[in-house]
Design a protein around this nucleic acid. Structure first.
Lengths: 197, 197
DNA sequence: AAATATATTGAACGACCATTCAATATAAAT
DNA sequence: ATTTATATTGAATGGTCGTTCAATATATTT
């Protein structure tokens, strides 16, 4: 009895608003007050749903990582054909994600990794699970003779380093042509590792 | 006439203190007030040397990038011997730098890259100049027949991606053994690119 | 010793913030 | 209609912050 709880709905709304404000002002300047202002509600309502500012941050991290993980919905393939592997690599080195989350907010969250144990392990967990997905894919492809590599684990590690290194550096590159050329170079290298030069 | 200026000395002291406070509290929580408190001076003295909070940030960025560039004091070599190239790669994939700057502060500064044009171009400039150093080294080595690669530029790009990707991910890895094993894998790959497997 | 430029302090202001608490509003259940 | 649990508001508190400004201190030059 009593009024129905809006907790889950409101929490999601608030976190989305928090993310929006962070995009606009930078995570370091995103405050409960600003989010409330943006949502046109009272600050204390936000506190009602998130006991503390830190809880709000946790919610944002969860949201960001959830978005991040969406990149890898390239699952359930059998990897019996070259084109499937090619598609997988294409996906990793594509920038569909640009629309999935804001780089500024993402790297600000990443920086928190060095100060907050919970955020750190959440990030680590996601990155490891994504690596597992690639490893599994490579194992299947290897078994099917689509590729021929010695260690799926090592190859996956290298491909991820190429990809994450690419996005680290390319985040600073404004020129569209430079960006695509450099990204193509690194993708080509990833394919070469799989004997798909 | 009048009193001698302490401007340069004090500015350096203040920036170093700012960096120290940022290490302790996180860049997002480092304030003029806290720095003044840490230095046991009046906040207004900091304002006297840095007109604005933003100027203080500029100083910190300069400091961080200066530290970062120190990694690459592997210059002036002739690259006529394999060992010199090997040493170069060893350096890139070593973690001497761990002592040069704090990861948390560094990536917080990196995140600012997405919001501040000046910081962005400063970062970009440094990263490009470091790439040029490697490209030059590879060109010499290639000319001397120490290595045999098709494009020094592309190879350098790939090696940097491997390295920067390595540090991005390894920043989340707590296990010493995992860390060294994964780093070794990536270094090995860099060497393989140079035909030095 | 006087003049002068810079160093340093200290107080004060206005802005913003997270959090608290009590009061009011609203919807569901009985 | 009353009860009840949750939603939402609004005001207030105490803290921190960047910045300003006037006052004082100190060192150098003449």
């Amino acid at each position: 009895m009593g009024r129905l709880s809006l907790k889950e709905t409101r929490q999601k709304e608030i976190i989305l608003a928090f993310y929006t404000v962070a995009k606009k002002t930078g995570l370091e300047n995103a405050s409960i007050a600003k989010v409330a202002d943006y949502m046109d509600i009272n600050p204390s309502l936000i506190v009602h749903y998130f006991k503390t500012r830190e809880a709000l941050f946790s919610g944002l991290i969860e949201f960001i990582l959830q978005q991040y993980s969406q990149i890898y919905k390239i699952n359930g393939q059998a990897y019996t054909r070259t084109s499937e592997v090619k598609k997988l690599i294409d996906n990793l080195f594509s920038r569909k994600w640009d629309n999935l989350f804001d780089d500024s907010v993402f790297y600000s969250c990443y920086a928190l990794t060095y100060r907050d144990k919970n955020i750190r392990s959440a990030f680590r967990l996601l990155h490891d699970s994504l690596r597992k997905l690639l490893i599994d894919a490579l194992k299947k492809a290897n078994k099917n003779g689509v590729i021929n590599i010695k260690s799926e684990k090592e190859t996956a590690e290298i491909i991820f380093a190429l990809m994450e290194g690419a996005y680290y550096y390319l985040g600073m590159v404004d020129s569209r042509t430079d960006y695509t050329r450099k990204l193509a170079t690194l993708k080509k290298q990833a394919l070469a590792l799989l004997g798909m030069g």
